[in-house]
Design a protein around this nucleic acid. Structure first.
Length: 110
DNA sequence: CTATTGACCTTCT
DNA sequence: GAGAAGGCCAATA
């Protein structure tokens, strides 16, 4: 459906909300799904502003290498890993196996 | 108001 | 192969 012409941030929020439990996505894929793969930084900023929003599983978003780069921004540096493992995502060395847990978001409007 | 930074990624040298 | 720079938008100082 159409009609989702909102701010870039809200688009990221909706996409992150659609991430199924036990899966993780990357900033680049979110940015690319929004049609702006160069704006991967904005995704990080969007999540940074969404860290106070418990409705947004920002812990399911990792960088291109699957590293939990934003774990330090959580309430506790281990909260991110705890949440991921709690959902069945095995975290090793602050990293997740993208080949196994990588979830590709549906491409939004072009 | 301008300048700098920021949970990143891609491409060039 | 490794390193450096650029690019995107927003928030903060």
């Amino acid at each position: 459906m159409s009609g989702n012409h909102r701010d870039f941030f809200e688009r990221v929020y909706e996409l992150v909300r659609q991430i199924p439990a036990g899966k993780v996505t990357t900033y680049g894929h979110i940015a690319e799904a929004l049609g702006v793969r160069s704006a991967a930084r904005l995704v990080g900023w969007a999540l940074h502003a969404a860290r106070f929003d418990a409705s947004i599983p920002c812990h399911r978003v990792v960088n291109r290498r699957g590293e939990l780069t934003g774990k330090h921004h959580f309430a506790t540096p281990t909260l991110m890993q705890e949440l991921l493992e709690s959902e069945g995502v095995h975290v090793e060395d602050d990293r997740v196996d993208l080949a196994r847990y990588l979830w590709v978001p549906p491409r939004a409007e072009p």
